[in-house]
Write a protein that binds this DNA or RNA. Structure first.
Length: 184
DNA sequence: TGGGCGATTGGCT
DNA sequence: GCCAATCGCCCAC
Protein backbone atom coordinates (compact mmCIF):
# COMPACT_ATOMS: atom_id res chain seq x y z
CA UNK A 1 0.00 0.00 0.00
CA UNK A 2 1.03 3.58 -0.65
CA UNK A 3 0.09 6.75 1.21
CA UNK A 4 0.36 10.06 -0.63
CA UNK A 5 -0.15 13.55 0.77
CA UNK A 6 -0.46 16.70 -1.30
CA UNK A 7 -0.12 20.23 0.05
CA UNK A 8 0.79 23.62 -1.41
CA UNK A 9 4.42 22.52 -0.97
CA UNK A 10 3.97 19.50 -3.24
CA UNK A 11 3.36 15.77 -2.92
CA UNK A 12 5.12 13.07 -0.96
CA UNK A 13 4.27 9.38 -1.34
CA UNK A 14 5.40 6.53 0.89
CA UNK A 15 5.34 2.78 0.37
CA UNK A 16 4.20 1.39 3.72
CA UNK A 17 6.53 -1.21 5.20
CA UNK A 18 5.41 -1.50 8.84
CA UNK A 19 2.01 -1.33 10.58
CA UNK A 20 0.33 -2.37 13.83
CA UNK A 21 -3.27 -3.50 14.45
CA UNK A 22 -5.41 -2.09 17.26
CA UNK A 23 -8.72 -3.76 18.07
CA UNK A 24 -10.78 -1.23 20.04
CA UNK A 25 -13.07 -2.83 22.61
CA UNK A 26 -11.04 -5.96 23.33
CA UNK A 27 -7.56 -4.42 23.17
CA UNK A 28 -6.22 -2.66 26.28
CA UNK A 29 -3.50 -1.12 24.11
CA UNK A 30 -6.00 0.74 21.94
CA UNK A 31 -7.00 4.37 22.42
CA UNK A 32 -10.59 3.23 21.94
CA UNK A 33 -10.47 0.58 24.70
CA UNK A 34 -12.25 2.78 27.23
CA UNK A 35 -14.89 4.07 24.87
CA UNK A 36 -15.40 7.08 22.66
CA UNK A 37 -13.90 10.47 23.57
CA UNK A 38 -13.30 13.69 21.65
CA UNK A 39 -9.78 12.55 20.72
CA UNK A 40 -10.62 9.11 19.35
CA UNK A 41 -14.01 9.92 17.80
CA UNK A 42 -12.77 9.27 14.25
CA UNK A 43 -12.01 5.65 15.18
CA UNK A 44 -15.72 5.11 15.83
CA UNK A 45 -16.65 6.25 12.32
CA UNK A 46 -16.50 4.28 9.06
CA UNK A 47 -13.36 2.63 7.69
CA UNK A 48 -10.93 4.42 5.41
CA UNK A 49 -10.61 7.60 7.46
CA UNK A 50 -7.43 8.93 9.08
CA UNK A 51 -7.08 9.11 12.87
CA UNK A 52 -4.21 11.44 13.86
CA UNK A 53 -3.19 11.90 17.50
CA UNK A 54 -0.63 14.00 19.33
CA UNK A 55 1.70 12.35 21.83
CA UNK A 56 4.72 13.02 24.05
CA UNK A 57 3.94 16.71 23.79
CA UNK A 58 5.62 16.94 20.38
CA UNK A 59 4.79 14.13 17.98
CA UNK A 60 1.93 13.11 15.71
CA UNK A 61 1.10 9.52 14.77
CA UNK A 62 -1.59 8.24 12.42
CA UNK A 63 -3.96 5.33 11.97
CA UNK A 64 -6.25 4.14 9.21
CA UNK A 65 -9.68 3.29 10.61
CA UNK A 66 -10.35 -0.35 9.71
CA UNK A 67 -13.67 -1.37 11.27
CA UNK A 68 -17.20 -0.40 10.25
CA UNK A 69 -19.01 2.47 11.95
CA UNK A 70 -19.28 1.86 15.67
CA UNK A 71 -16.46 -0.69 15.74
CA UNK A 72 -13.26 1.22 16.51
CA UNK A 73 -10.52 -0.96 15.03
CA UNK A 74 -7.57 0.79 13.40
CA UNK A 75 -4.15 0.26 11.86
CA UNK A 76 -1.20 2.35 13.07
CA UNK A 77 1.13 3.31 10.23
CA UNK A 78 4.64 2.96 11.63
CA UNK A 79 7.11 3.25 8.76
CA UNK A 80 7.63 3.39 5.04
CA UNK A 81 9.91 4.15 2.12
CA UNK A 82 9.64 7.54 0.41
CA UNK A 83 9.00 6.83 -3.28
CA UNK A 84 7.90 10.29 -4.44
CA UNK A 85 8.73 13.83 -3.35
CA UNK A 86 11.91 12.82 -1.58
CA UNK A 87 13.35 16.34 -1.66
CA UNK A 88 10.31 17.74 0.12
CA UNK A 89 10.49 14.91 2.64
CA UNK A 90 14.16 15.69 3.32
CA UNK A 91 13.28 19.35 3.80
CA UNK A 92 10.50 18.58 6.27
CA UNK A 93 12.71 16.17 8.21
CA UNK A 94 15.66 18.55 8.05
CA UNK A 95 17.90 15.84 6.66
CA UNK A 96 20.61 16.29 4.02
CA UNK A 97 20.43 14.24 0.87
CA UNK A 98 22.21 10.93 1.40
CA UNK A 99 21.46 7.32 0.69
CA UNK A 100 22.17 6.52 4.30
CA UNK A 101 19.84 9.08 5.88
CA UNK A 102 17.09 8.66 3.27
CA UNK A 103 16.39 5.33 4.94
CA UNK A 104 15.32 7.19 8.08
CA UNK A 105 13.01 9.71 6.40
CA UNK A 106 9.83 7.83 7.31
CA UNK A 107 11.27 5.18 9.66
CA UNK A 108 9.02 5.43 12.75
CA UNK A 109 5.43 6.64 13.21
CA UNK A 110 6.20 10.27 14.09
CA UNK A 111 8.86 10.57 11.36
CA UNK A 112 6.35 9.20 8.86
CA UNK A 113 3.93 11.99 9.77
CA UNK A 114 6.63 14.65 9.46
CA UNK A 115 7.79 13.38 6.06
CA UNK A 116 4.22 13.51 4.76
CA UNK A 117 3.47 16.85 6.44
CA UNK A 118 0.57 15.36 8.41
CA UNK A 119 -0.50 17.09 11.60
CA UNK A 120 -3.61 17.63 13.68
CA UNK A 121 -5.69 18.98 10.79
CA UNK A 122 -5.23 15.69 8.90
CA UNK A 123 -7.43 14.00 11.50
CA UNK A 124 -10.68 12.78 9.94
CA UNK A 125 -9.46 12.88 6.33
CA UNK A 126 -11.26 10.50 3.97
CA UNK A 127 -8.37 8.53 2.47
CA UNK A 128 -10.48 6.95 -0.24
CA UNK A 129 -12.22 10.09 -1.55
CA UNK A 130 -11.47 11.51 -4.99
CA UNK A 131 -8.94 14.36 -4.85
CA UNK A 132 -8.35 13.84 -1.15
CA UNK A 133 -5.25 15.69 0.13
CA UNK A 134 -4.19 12.41 1.74
CA UNK A 135 -4.89 9.25 -0.21
CA UNK A 136 -4.38 5.55 0.40
CA UNK A 137 -3.46 3.79 -2.83
CA UNK A 138 -2.85 0.30 -4.07
CA UNK A 139 0.83 -0.35 -4.43
CA UNK A 140 3.25 -3.11 -5.33
CA UNK A 141 3.15 -5.92 -2.83
CA UNK A 142 6.00 -8.28 -2.04
CA UNK A 143 6.57 -11.99 -2.23
CA UNK A 144 5.88 -14.05 0.84
CA UNK A 145 4.28 -13.49 4.20
CA UNK A 146 4.72 -10.39 6.37
CA UNK A 147 6.80 -10.80 9.50
CA UNK A 148 4.88 -10.50 12.77
CA UNK A 149 5.75 -9.70 16.38
CA UNK A 150 4.65 -7.74 19.44
CA UNK A 151 3.79 -4.06 19.09
CA UNK A 152 6.37 -1.40 19.89
CA UNK A 153 6.45 0.43 23.21
CA UNK A 154 3.15 -0.80 24.65
CA UNK A 155 2.63 -1.43 28.34
CA UNK A 156 -0.79 -3.02 27.94
CA UNK A 157 -1.31 -6.17 25.85
CA UNK A 158 2.42 -6.30 25.11
CA UNK A 159 2.17 -9.98 24.25
CA UNK A 160 -0.17 -9.71 21.27
CA UNK A 161 1.78 -10.19 18.01
CA UNK A 162 -0.09 -7.52 16.11
CA UNK A 163 2.82 -5.75 14.46
CA UNK A 164 3.36 -6.58 10.78
CA UNK A 165 6.26 -5.64 8.56
CA UNK A 166 7.98 -6.48 5.30
CA UNK A 167 10.82 -8.87 6.16
CA UNK A 168 14.35 -7.47 5.78
CA UNK A 169 13.15 -4.06 4.62
CA UNK A 170 15.65 -1.43 5.83
CA UNK A 171 12.96 1.20 6.45
CA UNK A 172 11.26 -0.86 9.18
CA UNK A 173 11.79 0.70 12.62
CA UNK A 174 13.64 -1.17 15.39
CA UNK A 175 11.64 -3.02 18.06
CA UNK A 176 11.59 -1.53 21.56
CA UNK A 177 9.69 -2.93 24.53
CA UNK A 178 7.81 -0.64 26.92
CA UNK A 179 10.07 1.28 29.33
CA UNK A 180 8.49 2.14 32.69
CA UNK A 181 9.04 5.72 33.84
CA UNK A 182 11.49 5.95 36.68
CA UNK A 183 10.01 6.99 40.02
CA UNK A 184 11.30 9.90 42.06
C1' DT B 1 -9.55 19.42 39.24
C1' DG B 2 -4.59 18.00 38.78
C1' DG B 3 -0.88 14.77 38.29
C1' DG B 4 0.99 10.81 35.99
C1' DC B 5 1.99 9.05 31.77
C1' DG B 6 2.19 8.18 26.67
C1' DA B 7 1.40 3.61 19.92
C1' DT B 8 8.58 8.87 20.24
C1' DT B 9 12.70 10.95 18.85
C1' DG B 10 17.37 12.79 18.72
C1' DG B 11 21.37 14.07 21.10
C1' DC B 12 24.86 13.02 24.26
C1' DT B 13 27.79 9.66 27.13
C1' DG C 1 22.70 2.88 26.21
C1' DC C 2 20.50 6.59 28.64
C1' DC C 3 17.77 10.51 29.17
C1' DA C 4 15.31 14.92 28.51
C1' DA C 5 11.86 17.41 25.93
C1' DT C 6 6.92 18.70 26.27
C1' DC C 7 1.70 18.86 26.53
C1' DG C 8 -2.89 16.80 25.92
C1' DC C 9 -5.57 13.23 27.69
C1' DC C 10 -7.94 10.75 31.22
C1' DC C 11 -9.07 8.96 35.54
C1' DA C 12 -8.57 8.82 40.45
C1' DC C 13 -9.12 12.01 44.02
Amino acid sequence: MVLRSTTSEGSVAVRLTEVEAYDGPTDPGSHAYRGQTARNAVMFGPAGFLYVYFTYGMHFCMNVVAGPKGQPSAVLLRAGEVIEGIELARLRRNQPASKKSDRDLARGPARLCVALGIEREGNGTDLLAKNSPIELLDGPGFDGEPATGPRVGLREAADRPWRFWIPDDPTVSPYRPHVPKKRA
